[in-house]
Design a protein around this nucleic acid. Structure first.
Lengths: 183, 183
DNA sequence: TTATTTTATATGTATATACATCTATTTATG
DNA sequence: CATAAATAGATGTATATACATATAAAATAA
C-alpha cells in the first residue's frame, strides 16, 4: 500500500481501517510479543494458568526457531540434543539409558533417535562389553563436525532472537523452578 | 529398606551409600526442582541458554502432568486444546483456520485432530455455507461434557502441582514475554 | 546352580509435529 | 465472463511422543 498525498488527505473511515491493518501487520512481522495475541485469547482463570500457557507457547516458539536452523544440517531438534549429550562425555561411550536421563523431554524414544543418527553416520553404536544388555554410543568425526557447525548457528540465532538480559534470565530460571515445585 | 537398630549402629561405608540413595529417591518422588538434576547437566553457556532449556523442560513437565490426566478421559493434550478453543466461541461455529490460529503450538495439524474428535463424537463438522472451502466445527453435548469434566480435573492437578504465587506468576509472564521479544 | 526377578533396550501402536503437496473454492485481474 | 491467483483444507511423509509389550542379559534368590 502506497501512502499517496490523496490518501493522506482523505478522511474516510475505510482509509482509517486500511492504515490500522497495515500497522498491525508490521508489528506482527517484527515480534509477536503478547501471549494474548499469540493464542488470540485474553480470558485466563488466573496468572498461574496464564503462566502455564505462556511456558508452553514460549517452548514452542523457541523450539521452532532451532528446528528451522537444524533442518539445514539435516537433523531434528531431538537428534541435536542426543549429539549434544554425547559431546558432553566425548570421547567416553554412553549407554542409551544414560542419554535418556539427560534428555529434556524424558519420554523421548532414544533407541530410535540413535537409529537415525547411526544411518547418517553421526554416531557409532556397539553392544556393551561390560554389560551385554547395553548399547553404547559415541560420536563420529562427522557427528562432532555437524554438532559444532549447528551449535554456532543456534547460538547466533539465540543471540539475535532472545532479548532477555542476564539478570532477567537468572530471575526467570528461579521462577521456573518455583513453578515446578510444590512446597 | 528397613532401618533396623543394627543398621543404624553400623558405620560401614556401604551402609552410608545405601542411605544416601534412599534419601535421593524420596527427594525425586516429591519434587524434581533443579534443572541441573532434571537433565543431569550444570554446564550452561549463559543464564539465557539455561533459561531456554528451563523453559523447554518446564513445558514438558507441565504437559506430562495434563497428558496423564487427560488419558483417563480418552483425549490427548491437543484434542483437549481444540475442545477448549471451541468452547470459547460456543455455540458459534468455528472454521479450521480459526481454531489453528488459537492453538498454542501453531504447527498443529488441526484437520487431523478434528478427525479424531469427530470419531469420538465430541464435535460435529460440516462444510461452510458462506464459504464452501471452509470446514466449520462445533462442540456436541458429549464434547461439552467431557471438556467440563476434564477441566475440573486439570484445574485440581494444577492447584496441587504448581506452587507459584500470584505475584510470581505475573512476574513470570512478564519475563517470558521479554524472553520472546527482540527490541 | 537353577529359577526368578530386574534391568537395558528394542519394537509396536496411536497420535502428534513439521512441512510439502494436492484439491476445491473463492477472489482478483484482464 | 474467463482465466489466474489466492485461500481453506485434506492428505502424504518422516520423525517424534507417549506408552505398552517383548526380548535378552544380568542380578538376585531359592
Amino acid at each position: 500500500m502506497v501512502l499517496s498525498p490523496q490518501l493522506l488527505n482523505s478522511s474516510s473511515a475505510a482509509w482509517t481501517t486500511k492504515i490500522n491493518l497495515e500497522i498491525r501487520c508490521i508489528y506482527i512481522n517484527i515480534c509477536i510479543v503478547k501471549l494474548e495475541d499469540a493464542i488470540k485469547s485474553n480470558k485466563f482463570k488466573s496468572e498461574t494458568q496464564k503462566a502455564g500457557l505462556n511456558v508452553l507457547y514460549t517452548a514452542w516458539w523457541l523450539k521452532t526457531l532451532s528446528v528451522k536452523e537444524l533442518k539445514t544440517f539435516g537433523i531434528t531438534h531431538e537428534q541435536y540434543n542426543v549429539l549434544r549429550i554425547l559431546k558432553g562425555k566425548h570421547p567416553e561411550l554412553m549407554c542409551v539409558k544414560d542419554i535418556a536421563s539427560r534428555m529434556i523431554e524424558k519420554s523421548s524414544n532414544v533407541p530410535r533417535i540413535v537409529d537415525r543418527l547411526e544411518i547418517k553416520k553421526f554416531i557409532k553404536r556397539t553392544q556393551g562389553e561390560i554389560d551385554g544388555r547395553q548399547t553404547v554410543v559415541t560420536l563420529t568425526e562427522k557427528g562432532i563436525d555437524v554438532l559444532a557447525k549447528a551449535t554456532i548457528k543456534l547460538d547466533a540465532i539465540s543471540e539475535k532472537s532472545v532479548a532477555i538480559t542476564n539478570e532477567d534470565a537468572m530471575l526467570l530460571n528461579t521462577l521456573l523452578e518455583k513453578f515446578r515445585t510444590k512446597e
